[in-house]
């Protein structure tokens, strides 16, 4: 993130932090006092989270005032800016990485056998990131073959090591 955009980001963060802190304090106050167990009132479960909520809220307020002082309220959010950001190569790589990793961790794992899921993830990751439209067909085929072998070997070795050497029941 660029230095000049930091006050804007800080403003948004501070609002999220304050809202979060209010939620924490409220939930801490609502927590049972366990009087029926005759506990010491200073040991109620909500005491420490409540104090932490107050501190986080206080720090959030300081961040809010600071970002306002640095004119962070001028968010200048426009559709054009968003499109420019999305089109940046770095943004594309970021979203692709997040999408692929989430698809593997939350989509494939547990639904598809581990070995297959891992193979598919590694293969797709390599192919997508190494794809180069300008390359000739021979090079493209070579890349696919190398990706296939790499994914197969990595998935096989990781599965075997964790299953047989470390006795982990694979997901």
């Amino acid at each position: 993130m660029q230095e000049r955009d930091m006050p804007k980001a800080d403003l948004v963060t501070s609002i999220v932090l304050i809202a979060f802190a209010v939620g924490v304090v409220w939930m801490s106050i609502e927590m049972p006092r366990l009087e029926h167990r005759n506990i010491n009132p200073w040991t109620v479960p909500g005491l420490v989270p409540g104090i932490l909520g107050v501190i986080i809220g206080f720090l959030g307020l300081i961040l809010l005032f600071r970002s306002i002082k640095q004119k962070g309220y001028a968010l200048e959010l426009t559709g054009e800016k968003f499109i420019t950001w999305v089109k940046k190569p770095a943004s594309k790589r970021l979203w692709l990485t997040v999408l692929l990793t989430l698809a593997y961790a939350w989509g494939l794992i547990g639904r598809v056998p581990y070995l297959l899921a891992t193979f598919l993830f590694i293969f797709a990751f390599i192919i997508i990131f190494e794809y180069n439209r300008g390359e000739n067909k021979k090079k493209k085929v070579k890349r696919v073959v190398i990706a296939f072998i790499t994914a197969g070997l990595a998935a096989g070795i990781v599965s075997a090591v964790f299953r047989y050497a470390f006795l982990v029941r694979l997901p």
Partner: peptide, 9 residues
């Protein structure tokens, strides 16, 4: 591109 997916696994 080859290392990072293995690291994530």
């Amino acid at each position: 591109e080859k290392l990072m997916p293995i690291v994530f696994v």
